[in-house]
């Protein structure tokens, strides 16, 4: 009851909270930009690869497809393990 009062606004307007809110907003915007960018470009890459593979003999096709998929996976792992805070100790 009465959580939103004078006390709340005092804290909400503190430099610390304002900074945290800004950091949070920036984080979300960057994250979703990056996510949609990734989703769209990955879909395009799959399409391109499939078009190219279409003309190849069966065995070559699956070899090349696995090769491509392996590179995508490696990229995803690299993205996940981008330097986190712990790497700066």
């Amino acid at each position: 009851p009465g959580r939103i009062g004078r006390e709340f606004y005092k804290k909400a307007n503190s430099p610390k909270t304002k900074r945290l809110v800004t950091v949070c907003q920036m984080y979300f915007l960057d994250y979703y930009c990056d996510l949609f960018d990734y989703v769209i470009s990955r879909r395009d890459r799959i399409k391109q690869v499939e078009e190219i593979l279409d003309g190849l003999p069966f065995q070559e096709r699956s070899l090349q497809w696995n090769n491509y998929v392996g590179r995508e996976r490696a990229f995803l792992r690299k993205k996940r393990t981008k330097p986190r805070n712990k790497d700066f100790h």
């Binding site: 769209i40 470009s41 395009d44 090769n67 998929v69 392996g70 590179r71």
Partner: peptide
Amino acid sequence: QQQQAYYQQELHSASSIPGQRQVSSH
């Protein structure tokens, strides 16, 4: 397991995948 062989070859070229083609502007 099947994937791993391919995957290891790609150790060094992993970074070359994205941005092969710029889909839209940032």
